[in-house]
Design a protein around this nucleic acid. Structure first.
Lengths: 186, 186
DNA sequence: CTCTCCATACCAACCGGTCTGTTTTTAACT
DNA sequence: AGTTAAAAACAGACCGGTTGGTATGGAGAG
């Protein structure tokens, strides 16, 4: 793997765990066993440019992953269950959700950097698009599909946060059981 | 208002907006128009002690506020609608949710500081307790009440995050319409 | 005279970022 | 194929500014 990809991969993990300000440039350098010259060669605009690149990398990872799962299962409900199960497994294995969320960055940077906020906004929109598409296939109208997709996104993100605070995978499991109620006609 | 209360009040707002690492001690000092001597007199253990005090202050504010609303309305659903409406109004007035969430601190500090993580965990538990109590009054069993309460908390927190990223109050409004579906028998 | 409360000067550590110089790879020309 | 120039990739010293935190000293109240 080339240096740039490695930087992105490692920095992404760090940012997800500790947020933007929580990770120092030198910490990234140590983790990658590179020096400042390398980092500022690939990311001349520094840390924030790296963050945005990482966010786009997360975007790729999340959306393709979700899309794969959503193609495997017939209904939205089944796909959601499988997806959350994967999140739970991920959490129980690594003690943190890596790769599926970037809430720490959102809540930290939304009020500080417009570019970052925008990138995150597009990311969430893209994820919801996948849900909406499947929901429409399930027979929902476009409007209700959009509402449900938002509800799904919100509750999963919130549940992940509760998992981190409580140090249990329970919240995600509970969400998985309650979400079907949202997938009924309104 | 005495100096200590003022520090807590102002620091709480700053922490909610920018997270823990996002706020410098000197920034707090400027906002309070005090000096380091005052801060470290009232909080000898420094910034983290101040944060935890702020979290407990948020706890007080949130729980009493929610409790007032939940006593005003008959059913959980009505109370929730009123509560979210208040959040929406707050967001549209101030451009940010102040006083009702601390997600930025959670996702940032959960993996870094056990004391902070624990404080946050207790906070969320306390909020859910209010929901659960009302839900049991509505006729739900204790187990399903707990599940629903968690779902409510998660979706609201997630919706707040989406509001911040999208810079709209729409997500909260949508949640308000979808949440009733969760309040049916499972 | 003491104790709470606070102001100020000071500190080492670290922050993100720049700069210059060196190595390594690539491309072109003979 | 061998030589060479240019460009990409990187190393590491250096910088001003800021970080959270400490130590000292003074003002005012009891």
């Amino acid at each position: 793997m080339d240096t740039k990809s490695q930087i992105i991969y490692i920095a992404t993990n760090l940012f997800q765990q500790k947020g933007y300000k929580g990770v120092g440039v030198s910490e990234i350098l140590n983790a990658c066993t590179i020096t400042k010259g390398a980092l500022y060669h690939h990311f001349p605009n520094g840390k924030e440019e790296l963050l945005i690149t990482c966010l786009e990398s997360i975007d790729q990872a999340i959306t393709t992953d979700i899309e794969v799962i959503f193609k495997q299962y017939q209904t939205t409900q089944e796909a959601l269950c499988a997806m959350i199960e994967k999140l739970v497994a991920n959490f129980e294995r690594e003690g943190t959700i890596s790769g599926y969320t970037f809430s720490s960055i959102v809540s930290e940077m939304a009020s500080l950097s417009e570019p970052v906020r925008n990138t995150c906004s597009n990311l969430y929109a893209k994820i919801q698009e996948i849900y909406i598409k499947k929901l429409v296939e399930d027979g929902f109208s476009k409007d209700t599909a959009a509402s449900i997709a938002l509800m799904i996104t919100a509750s999963i993100e919130g549940a992940i946060m509760l998992c981190l605070t409580d140090n249990t995978s329970e919240p995600l499991k509970v969400i998985s059981h309650v979400l079907p109620n949202v997938l009924k006609e309104s």
